[in-house]
Amino acid sequence: MDFDFEAPLEELKEKIKLLDEKAAAGDATASSKAAQLRKKLEAQTARIYSTLEPWDKVQLARHPGRPTITRYSKEMCDDFIEIHGDRVFGDDPAMLCGFARIGDQRFMLIGHRKGDTVEQNIEYNFGMANPEGYRKAMRAMHLAEKWHLPVVTMVDTSGAFPGLEAEARGQAEAIGRNLMEMAALETPILTIVTGEGGSGGALGIAVGDRILMLENAVYSVISPEGCASILWRDGTKAPEAAKALHITSSDLAELKVIDGIIPEPVGGAHSHPEATMENVKAAIISNLKELEKVSASHLTENRYKKFAAIGRFN
């Protein structure tokens, strides 16, 4: 995917590539020119990424090159045992759940699963879960509670799937029940919005003791396109809607809806997936360490207070 704001970078990258080829052929001036341009590229990238508009971040958050939960489970974790099915209807591939380990830290990993390829995306329904996905997630959380494992949820979905069967099987009930049961879950819950936090479908696994966002992730009550077409009656006003809705990580930190921002390397998670996963790993380790010190009764009481405080009238 190409972004308008990345166009000047693409040009530079092309030039560097050509110079590198010349340098490889023995052209000494080309080699020093390439080095110069590399510095320029770095500076320009940093400048562009420090002035991104909310709508740019929407594009970044949806970038297919961002690490998916499949990669987090395989590359960031040292071990992962997937569990399947909600024990009622079926196994939703759009929701990945399983026992995960990083070093000595064991936890239950739960999250929306987008694909790394087009084929995978079709198989995983582009990360849009059905009711059985939300019910599988809840089953995994209760299992974690029973085994005294902390829970890490990773949010990356445009929303819960809007389908006939999803409605027939109770999409609304499944999400509502998760919200209620997560509030009372007697084990730590760490939520990380890694990409797209799309409305109720995101929230259905996001009632965390701590909520973190990757720097370029977004989290919103409605997609900017949807909001624009309703409130502006014009879908092309999505960039304005994105701004008005306050959906970036810094917006949400300011609103005190999230507890922290996990930095992405300059150039974004899609340019540096490994370094991004390292940052996420560090955040998981340090946050779980702190949350695991809190007693179960304090955890649920603090979680209640945390959500009760959002939108408190004064």
């Binding site: 929230l203 809705l245 959500f307 959002i310």
Partner: peptide, 21 residues
């Protein structure tokens, strides 16, 4: 949810369900 209050509206879903719990 009321879009005009953005994410704060979305969070009311969690808030009310925490009360129900």
């Amino acid at each position: 949810a009321r879009m005009h209050e953005g994410i704060i509206s979305l969070m009311q879903m969690a808030k009310t369900c925490a009360a129900v719990s």
